[in-house]
Amino acid sequence: MGEEIKVIVFKLGEEEYGVEVDKVQSIERMVPITRVPNTFTFVKGVFNLRGVVMPVIDLRGRFGLEETEYTDQTRIIIVAVNDMQVGFIVDSANDVIDLNSDAIETPPEVVGGIKAKYLRGVAKISEERLLIMLNLSEVLNKSELVQLESIEE
């Protein structure tokens, strides 16, 4: 029997994604973001959250999905990856669930157009509900982290 993990569920388009609660520091409403030149297009810039300046990444852009207008539902999920805080822009984040780690299966090569390396796996929550679990260390791979760390300075 696998362990129970708490997962924050968020949406990009029609797909539901999950990230472990212990990696999430907070979920914020959309705020003005300061654009930073010479960064990847999915890096929207930086913002100041309670005195900490951190990079903000649009996950739609990161995954090669079509970017959309931000709405009242748009959220920034603050995650900690390798001692660094990063904000992920998502369409909405409104659920926390308990998930048995045994329910997470190896992802197919491509899920919804997203390469498997960004995914930890796919969890079947119910007959019609799948949750795509993110692999945060790949979503922010090392070379990009180095570039983002230089933004924070």
Score class of each variant (00 low, 15 high):
Glu28Trp: 10
Glu28Gly: 01
Glu28Ser: 09
Met30Arg: 11
Met30Leu: 11
Val31Tyr: 04
Pro32Ser: 06
Ile33Val: 04
Ile33Lys: 00
Ile33Asp: 01
Arg35Leu: 01
Val36Phe: 00
Pro37His: 14
Pro37Asn: 13
Asn38Ser: 13
Asn38Lys: 13
Thr39Asn: 05
Thr39Val: 11
Phe40Asp: 06
Phe40Tyr: 02
Phe40Ala: 07
Thr41His: 14
Thr41Met: 13
Phe42Thr: 03
Phe42Ser: 09
Gly45Trp: 00
Gly45Asn: 01
Gly45Leu: 01
Phe47Lys: 07
Gly51Leu: 15
Val52Gly: 03
Val52Asn: 15
Val53His: 10
Met54Arg: 08
Val56Thr: 03
Ile57Cys: 05
Asp58Pro: 07
Asp58Gly: 07
Asp58Ile: 01
Leu59Ser: 12
Arg60Met: 12
Gly61Phe: 12
Gly61Met: 11
Leu65Asn: 03
Leu65Pro: 00
Glu66Trp: 00
Glu66Pro: 13
Glu66Cys: 02
Glu67Pro: 11
Glu67Phe: 00
Glu67Asn: 09
Glu69Pro: 13
Glu69Val: 05
Glu69Ile: 00
Glu69Gly: 08
Tyr70Val: 07
Thr71Glu: 12
Thr71Asn: 11
Gln73Phe: 09
Gln73Asn: 11
Arg75His: 03
Ile76Asp: 10
Ile77Ser: 14
Ile77Lys: 14
Ile78Phe: 08
Ile78Ala: 07
Ile78Asp: 06
Ile78Gly: 08
Val79His: 10
Ala80Val: 13
Ala80Ser: 14
Asn82Glu: 15
Asp83Tyr: 15
Asp83Gln: 15
Gln85Ile: 05
Gln85Thr: 11
Val86Ser: 12
Val86Asn: 11
Gly87Pro: 02
Gly87Asp: 10
Phe88Arg: 04
Phe88Cys: 08
Ile89Phe: 09
Val90Leu: 09
Asp91Val: 09
Asp91Pro: 07
Asp91Ala: 08
Asp91His: 05
Ser92His: 02
Ser92Lys: 11
Ser92Met: 06
Ala93Glu: 10
Asn94Leu: 02
Asp95Asn: 05
Asp95Leu: 08
Val96Glu: 09
Val96Pro: 08
Val96Trp: 00
Ile97Trp: 01
Ile97Arg: 04
Leu99Lys: 04
Leu99His: 03
Asp102Ser: 14
Ala103Asp: 15
Ile104Asp: 10
Ile104Gly: 10
Ile104Met: 10
Glu105Cys: 08
Glu105Phe: 10
Glu105Trp: 08
Thr106Ala: 14
Thr106Asn: 13
Thr106Trp: 06
Pro107Leu: 10
Pro107Gln: 11
Pro107Val: 13
Pro108Glu: 13
Val110Cys: 01
Val111Gln: 02
Val111Asp: 04
Val111Leu: 09
Val111Ala: 06
Gly112Trp: 00
Gly113Ile: 07
Gly113Arg: 04
Ile114Tyr: 00
Ile114Glu: 00
Ile114Asn: 00
Tyr118Met: 06
Tyr118Gln: 03
Leu119Gly: 03
Leu119His: 08
Arg120Gln: 15
Arg120Glu: 15
Ala123Asp: 06
Lys124Val: 07
Lys124Trp: 02
Lys124Thr: 05
Ile125Asn: 01
Ile125Arg: 04
Ser126Val: 07
Ser126Cys: 03
Glu128Val: 14
Arg129Met: 04
Leu130Thr: 07
Ile132Met: 03
Met133Ile: 13
Met133Asp: 11
Leu136Asp: 09
Glu138Phe: 03
Leu140His: 12
Asn141Lys: 05
Ser143Gln: 06
Glu144Ile: 07
Gln147His: 09
Leu148Ser: 11
Ser150Thr: 15
Ser150Trp: 13
Ser150Arg: 15
Ile151Met: 13
